[in-house]
């Protein structure tokens, strides 16, 4: 009656999301979208934490996810402020044109 889902299915789903995050991090050229793909990778890792917390019947993994969420919120605030500052000085969001340190 009650069909169960193997934990490895959750882990593979997290791996799919993480790989898509890595691919979009490398492919996207817009700095905001690159920042969003970091959030996607963090979400995939959070899913792994929750799946393992369920597997071991431990609450510690969920606590860890809570702290990851807090740090992600702080990181998003600071990162977006940096993006606004970059746009003010360079007038672009394309990472190929933000190459002041390259030469």
């Amino acid at each position: 009656m009650s069909a169960t889902v193997p934990i490895s299915a959750y882990l593979v789903l997290a791996a799919v999301l993480f790989s898509i995050g890595v691919a979009s991090f490398l492919i996207k050229r817009n700095i905001i979208t690159i920042f969003m793909s970091i959030e996607l990778m963090l979400n995939a890792v959070n899913l792994t934490f929750v799946a393992f917390a369920h597997m071991w019947h431990q609450i510690t993994g969920q606590i860890f996810v809570f702290f990851v969420m807090v740090v992600a919120a702080a990181e998003a605030a600071v990162g977006l402020a940096i993006i606004i500052a970059i746009f003010r000085t360079r007038q672009t969001l394309n990472v190929d044109q933000i190459n002041l340190l390259k030469n």
Binding site: I7, V12, A15, H54
Partner: peptide
């Protein structure tokens, strides 16, 4: 990642 997860899938159990 999915190779590691699926080869160890039995040890992880199910929800």
């Amino acid at each position: 990642l999915s190779f590691v997860f699926l080869t160890n899938g039995k040890a992880f159990g199910s929800t």
